[in-house]
């Protein structure tokens, strides 16, 4: 009887301690991790706008209108594709009022480091090739990697990842066309990424 009790008590005590440790870490890091996620996403948004005078207005969840003064210059929204090599690839897609791509930035992916991660700006310039493209100025067949008859470079050793992003971007543009008139009419809520990131820093703890 008691020979069963002792391991059980050990188990409970140790499990409680481990649980405490994990909860503490979570408590200590949670806010900062959330802030990191927001900051990372916003950093990408600012890069896409590529103009210090541009202001971001949140018009829907994960949809931001770009305005320069009173003029609407474009919209940035979140798109995702499940056709990658490993799980979802999520990215921001920025489109101007003419339907031309302002820029694309990958927010999260699990593609192979060293191969598929060339879709990140920090690793290669590939993602910049989308700038200026639109459904109007490209043929349907152009939306593919060169190997498959399109105009986009594949990566040596990795075709699935770029093909997935290309298809995701094209789908995003179609989505934009169906929503653009609604989005253009929205006023939304101004967000200021620069002050928002600064305000959440350590100097805000009083």
């Amino acid at each position: 009887m008691s020979s069963h009790k002792k391991p059980l008590i050990t188990f409970i005590v140790l499990a409680a301690f481990c649980g405490l440790l994990v909860s503490m870490s979570n408590l200590l890091s949670r806010d900062r991790i959330l802030e990191n996620q927001i900051r990372f996403a916003q950093k990408q948004l600012i890069e896409i706008a590529n103009d210090p005078k541009t202001e971001l207005f949140e018009i829907e969840t994960d949809v931001y209108q770009l305005r320069s003064g009173a003029e609407i210059t474009g919209v940035v929204f979140r798109q995702s594709t499940s056709k990658g090599y490993n799980g979802n690839i999520t990215f921001w897609l920025g489109v101007n009022t003419e339907g031309e791509i302002l820029g694309v930035r990958v927010i999260s992916h699990k593609e192979t480091p060293g191969l598929g991660d060339k879709i990140e700006t920090g690793v290669s310039d590939w993602i910049h090739t989308f700038a200026g493209k639109s459904l109007a100025n490209l043929q349907e067949a152009d939306w593919a990697v060169k190997k498959n008859g399109g105009i986009f470079d594949q990566f040596s050793g990795a075709t699935i990842t770029p093909a997935a992003v290309i298809e995701g971007v094209e789908t995003g543009l179609v989505h934009f066309e169906s929503r653009s008139s609604i989005w253009a009419g929205s006023t939304g809520q101004l967000i200021d990424p620069t002050t928002e990131t600064l305000n959440t820093g350590e100097n805000n703890e009083h």
Binding site: T10, C18, V22, S25, I33
Partner: peptide
């Protein structure tokens, strides 16, 4: 106890990995 040693060890390891993972995200 030898009957629970392995699961306990894995639990301890998983705990520290989770903490390290959170620290890395932090």
């Amino acid at each position: 106890d030898e009957r629970i040693r392995l699961p306990l060890q894995i639990m301890v390891i998983a705990t520290f990995v989770t903490c390290a993972d959170l620290a890395l995200q932090h």
